[in-house]
Nucleic acid binder design. Structure first.
Length: 423
RNA sequence: GGAGGAAUGGCAGAGUGGUCGAUUGCGGCGGUCUUGAAAACCGUUGUCCGUUCCGCGGGCCGGGGGUUCGAAUCCCUCUUCCUCCGCCA
């Protein structure tokens, strides 16, 4: 959520910058300013009215003490009028506040100045590519064929018991996933991230706090007999741990890592994009979250991207880093970097991590604050990134490491799996 | 699921209808003292909204609603926590 004070002062800039996200904010911003003005006027009227009736009440109190009952009763009658008036004003104020809040939540976060205008993932800027040219020429089978060959992923049985997009990992791939999760958690812990195990069901306030709600037709599954949502990422519960909190500056950076299953509706996805492990309704992910002082959040963003790159290098995977264009950057993010690995069986780049800085967008929604050096309340910046999401990573590991003896695992994971080939 | 108890400022803990945004202690911040620190002493210390920004007005005692001229205090309701019973991985 954007700060109303900021919009009030910089409405032209807000409209201009949101164009980068292909969002025409002019009507919305104008309505917000209009309502804001009305709201403040109403607040003023209400305050004056309440002040008057408050003073009268005090007077009545002292009149009673002095046993001047006639005068007291006379005043009592006067207050009833004020009361009526203040009731009207406060319900009016309530409506205006709600309306303003609703409109504010419809505004996306402002994109960082580095973000370029663009429509889709085709307009994303590759900022770094670390893949040997030779890999693009190599041949390989797609992972779904390898999964059959080694009998390690069962898509059909998953479909039977749940539906499309719910595979069953078996045998050595099941064990590989468990190993990867442990490896990622250990690595994050050694980098100072505190491990947490969050709920996978969250309430509406949490969904709102990180920006998934109020869009109910979006990515989250909603329960029918309880007001809860299945998390699409551990970002939601982990970031919301700090909702409605006043933090201390010396706590920064707050670093958490969490493993969780993630659930996504992925409505509208179809075709080859969803083949195999490419797009699932349920998958496992290790997520890193940081809460940082606004002055330092972009250093933190770089540090988080470097951290993910390090994992990919350790796993010996060819990767590239892109900065998403405005059109591809999510509603709540100021800037997002995607990390993709090249998967030679499908001959394409697979997104395995997405690292974002939300600046104050989430903290303003969540009412997360800290007291700064001047003693004033300030909104911190929130950041998160996948480190890493498993299915596409497993797909890439399978496709890129095919040998006649089976799929050879990178050395770094062998101590965790206890085996070095999937065969 | 059933029965009872509780929820007050960063924390602890007073306050049961009238100047209470709230006694007090701890903690925090500033100062005195000290070579420095501790102790002691003095002062200060919630947040949000509005404003003609010195200052002033209003809201907030778990959330919402009600009674009253007036509510932290009385009533209703919801949530959370604690104790006991039941069930249970």
């Amino acid at each position: 959520m954007l700060d109303i004070h900021y919009i009030r002062e910089n409405h032209k800039e807000v409209i201009e910058r949101l164009k980068v996200k292909n969002f025409d904010a002019s009507n919305l911003v104008n309505r917000i300013l209009e309502i804001d003005k009305k709201r403040r006027e109403t607040q003023n009227k209400l305050d004056t009215t309440l002040s008057e009736s408050k003073n009268m009440s005090k007077e009545i109190g002292s009149l009673f003490k002095e046993a001047k009952f006639d005068q007291a009763n006379e005043l009592k009658e006067k207050t009833s009028q004020l009361k009526e008036h203040s009731k009207e004003l406060s319900s009016e104020l309530e409506n205006l506040k709600n309306e303003q809040q609703k409109l504010l939540t419809e505004l996306p976060n402002l994109p960082h100045p580095s973000v370029k205008k663009g429509q889709s993932d085709e307009d994303n800027e590759v900022v770094e590519q670390q893949a040997k040219e030779s890999i693009f020429k190599e041949k390989g089978k797609p992972h779904w064929e390898l999964a059959d060959k080694y009998d390690v992923i069962d898509f059909n049985t998953g479909s039977k018991i749940s539906g499309a997009g719910f595979p069953i990992y078996k045998r050595k791939v099941a064990r590989l996933q468990r190993a990867l999760i442990n490896y990622f958690l250990d690595l994050a812990r050694s980098e100072g991230y505190e491990e947490v195990q969050p709920p996978v069901l969250v309430n509406e306030d949490s969904g709102f706090g990180t920006g998934q709600l109020p869009d109910k037709e979006g990515q989250m599954y909603e329960l029918e007999n309880a007001p809860l949502y299945l998390i699409p990422t551990a970002e939601v519960p982990v970031t919301n741990m700090y909702r409605d909190m006043v933090l201390q500056e010396k706590q920064f950076p707050i670093k958490n890592v969490a493993y969780s299953s993630c659930f996504r509706r992925e409505a509208g996805s179809y075709g080859k994009e969803v083949r195999g492990l490419n797009r699932l309704h349920q998958f496992d992910k290790v997520e890193i979250v940081q809460i940082q002082h606004p002055d330092k959040s972009y250093d933190t963003l770089t540090e988080m991207i470097e951290y993910v790159k390090r994992i990919l290098r350790n796993l010996e995977l060819p990767f590239r880093v892109s900065r998403l264009c405005g059109g591809d950057t999510s509603f709540a993010a100021a800037v997002t970097y995607d990390l993709e690995v090249y998967s030679k069986g499908q001959k394409k780049w697979l997104e395995v991590s997405s690292v974002s800085n939300f600046e104050t967008y989430q903290s303003l929604r969540m009412k997360t604050r800290f007291k700064n050096r001047e003693g004033k309340m300030q909104a911190p910046h929130t950041l998160n990134g996948s480190a890493l999401a498993l299915p596409r990573l497993v797909a890439a590991l399978m496709e890129n490491n095919q040998t006649s003896a089976g799929i050879k695992l990178p050395e770094v994971i062998v101590p965790y799996t206890g085996f070095d080939y999937i065969n």
